[in-house]
Nucleic acid binder design. Sequence first.
DNA 1: CTGAAAGCGCTTACAG
DNA 2: CTGAAAGCGCTTACAG
Lengths: 357, 357
Amino acid sequence: MTDTVPGRPPTAADVALHAGVSKATATRALGDYGRISQKTKQRVLAAADELGYRPNAAAQTMNTGKSGSLGIVARGITNPVWSVAFQGIVDAARESGKTVLFAGSGFDVAEERSAIDLFLGKQVDGLIVSAADNQDARHLRRAREHGVPLVLWERRVPGLDAPVVEADMRSASAELARELLKRGHRRVAFVSTLAQPTTHYERNLALPASIISDKIEGLFDAFDEANVAAPVDLVRFPNRTSEHIAKAFAEVLDHTDPPTALVASDSQVAETMLEVVRERGLRVPGDVSLAMFDNLSWARFTVPPLTVVAQPDYDMGRRAAQLAMGQIAPTHHSSGSPPFEAKLILRASVGPAPRNI
Amino acid sequence: MTDTVPGRPPTAADVALHAGVSKATATRALGDYGRISQKTKQRVLAAADELGYRPNAAAQTMNTGKSGSLGIVARGITNPVWSVAFQGIVDAARESGKTVLFAGSGFDVAEERSAIDLFLGKQVDGLIVSAADNQDARHLRRAREHGVPLVLWERRVPGLDAPVVEADMRSASAELARELLKRGHRRVAFVSTLAQPTTHYERNLALPASIISDKIEGLFDAFDEANVAAPVDLVRFPNRTSEHIAKAFAEVLDHTDPPTALVASDSQVAETMLEVVRERGLRVPGDVSLAMFDNLSWARFTVPPLTVVAQPDYDMGRRAAQLAMGQIAPTHHSSGSPPFEAKLILRASVGPAPRNI
DNA sequence: CTGAAAGCGCTTACAG
DNA sequence: CTGAAAGCGCTTACAG
């Protein structure tokens, strides 16, 4: 069956020898390029099959400059929402015969830079990056210098000419706030996480992540519409540990003018939010209404079910991959396409604000 | 700053020219091998820095046969538990300067084979595979032929000499059944998913996934200990869609001798289980006790909180990566090491069996 | 310590 | 249609 020397996978030269043709002819048959007679081709392919030949991708990459892989740099993959997006990327890539390289940055710029350098060295055909910081973009520009398509994931970087795949969080967030205002809520707390905790929020404060700004300013858009003072004093950015997140929620709940509704920026924050609410014995939505960004399946199973903002993660992942593979052209100015729609899913965790506090 | 020709990243030859040394000397400085004077080295490194040189990984791979990457083939990454394991793999790989290639197989053998072939062609330095089928191992053997370390993830393949990273599910499952038996449960249903639905289960039936067998036989071990007839007639293997899963639960609940406890093989099955239980208005644990495998954080937030079996996913991921990188040697017979411990976390969803049914 | 040269396994003009 | 040869960007003996 196999006359391969154990330890050394067969090369195109081996196949050529086995088929009794030249190396060039063999690789033409194998690689399906150039002109070649059907007869010869069959013979070569049969030989390849017998030897168990598989082309050496590294050699191919060196010749073509294409590696057949996409590089993804994001905070990590444990976020369940991101893992769905990642699946969309992997699926779309696979349909085009491409593989996916993944690196976690932990939203640390140095890590991100080294991952991008590594990937550029590996000749990735495209790069999808959820940028840690929208201020430091030099390492992102290197992708362009290498002629590698760069796609930004959910976080816009001013001055960088790269398509962004994102959902319209600002609108969805405004929609959420409208529903809260309609039910009498005036004091709404928002908790997200940032590597570098910021103490005070003020309108349009520059944040490292556009998506967080969008969520906050979206909420406040609705307050503006309703001529209600935006609760800027109830915005918190703890570190990404449950202790810090719990402390942030405790802080706002102990405020002299406390919130009647809590909004968690993502599901990890939401989990701690649920714990704090349970520990304090607060009734939902009797004492406090709750909502979170990210539509996780378990949100239906809490009691009461949790109001969430959903975005089409899987489709966004696919779009990102297609942009990174150059299969679709960016149509929108600073983004790859009009943003995806984010939807508010109102569930029983949102109710009327308590009358007196 | 840069005198790079736009469009062509600088090569080692460019660096050599810029530093006024030979190509060999330049790459020696860059690659940190062979003898070289400090002076020359500094000069070369400075030149490299100025040009923004990054070694072409494809060329390095072609020379060394090492790609600096690990290939992972698993069903997909949307399973939240697996995504934690994947993070462990990525982290351990990164600490050793390696990147991770991911491919989803959907537990389809053909997909799995083509992913493995692709990865072998890419000269991966190690392979971690959650094998779709424990009967068809030919494509897995190819890894050995290439001299690439193969690590199995949670699914043993008889006759394949490869370490397995897994937790001791059988013991944990027995522990769960003991707690159920102790509370008077005699009829316990178990629902998992399989690509090829099997209608009837019987003791020690050969299943494509060892981990599923372990969970079932673990339960039955405890029934044997207690001299209670194992409820083999309450085992179901629907397809992996919520419709089929729901139907499976409906089927067992409508059994003439219905279960007083339901066990879900993973969190996706558990979600549907919760829906069915809610739709039927069954009280938990009054009418039926519930448990699932996989310790997801949300299991604490259902009402009542869900009993789960936990395994150290992150550490298992790290171990798998270390084995695949050849950093630790397999110590155990058919597995990479003694299995990890799986732990039962008993929560309020498990209670006494209803007296009469 | 440094350089010239061969080689890794492909792709790609260029001849025939 | 097929072959001989150069080249991709490195690594690695082999000389000096």
